[in-house]
């Protein structure tokens, strides 16, 4: 090619007709596809969903004769909502009117901070919810019968609060596993939704950091 890229560019755009703006209709009512706006929307809907779910859980479990469990699970979920709302408010602080590096870094650190915060919460939330459900099952009529039958069957076994030690151990191990895997579960969930965007952000940041050296 005989022309330089600068010449191609100048010649190509010398006529303004080369740049025809697409027609835009009802722009204000269109949903943004920007990752920041989309996450804001998604988290907002998530929080509303959690509030509704928590209230339904409270009503249903109370109706089924487990108001304490319902109240406890509702309390756990509401704590999640309060923390989530706090995080959501900080998302609005990300300013698009800064350099690309500052913008992408601000968003990246917000996202990582959010994930760390949620992982901390889920590390306690998953096992607490699981243990609460197990305790409720243990004190229910059927659960108590199963525990009593098991205790009678293994009459030589050590009992912890009337429950054979291996059942307590199994519940403890499962709760421990839920706590241990809270991070990977949450990360997998986030990556399944935004893995592509996160990868893109990482690549862009790496490229920019090379340019900043």
């Amino acid at each position: 090619m005989s022309q330089s890229i600068e010449q191609i560019w100048k010649k190509g755009f010398v006529d303004n007709k080369a740049l025809i703006a697409p027609k835009i209709n009802d722009l204000y009512n269109k949903k943004s596809q920007n990752i920041v706006d989309k996450l804001h929307r998604l988290f907002k809907y998530n929080l509303i969903g959690i509030v509704i779910g928590a209230l339904i859980l409270l009503v249903v479990l109370s109706y089924k004769g487990a108001p304490i469990l319902g109240g406890f699970l509702c309390f756990l979920l509401m704590s999640l909502v309060v923390i989530g709302k706090k995080q959501l408010n900080t998302l609005s602080d990300i300013n698009k009117n800064v350099s690309s590096y500052q913008y992408i870094k601000a968003f990246d650190s917000w996202l990582k901070g959010l994930m760390d915060e949620y992982i901390k919460i889920y590390t306690y939330l998953y096992p607490l919810a699981f243990v609460a459900v197990m305790v409720r099952l243990a004190v229910s009529e059927d659960g108590a019968k199963i525990i009593t039958d098991t205790a009678n069957h293994f009459s030589e076994s050590l009992l912890i609060m009337g429950t054979p030690w291996f059942i307590v151990l199994a519940v403890t191990v499962l709760a421990g596993l839920l706590a241990y895997f809270a991070g990977p579960i949450y990360r997998a969930d986030m990556y399944s939704l935004y893995g592509g965007a996160m990868k893109k952000l990482d690549e862009v940041i790496a490229d920019m950091e090379e340019l900043r050296k």
Binding site: N34, V36, S100, E203
Partner: peptide, 20 residues
């Protein structure tokens, strides 16, 4: 414009490969 293009989430129906 650059910041928006760098963080635009392409609709699923088109092609997820856009991110990479």
């Amino acid at each position: 414009s650059l910041n928006v293009c760098l963080t635009y989430l392409k609709k699923k129906k088109n092609n997820d490969k856009q991110f990479a």
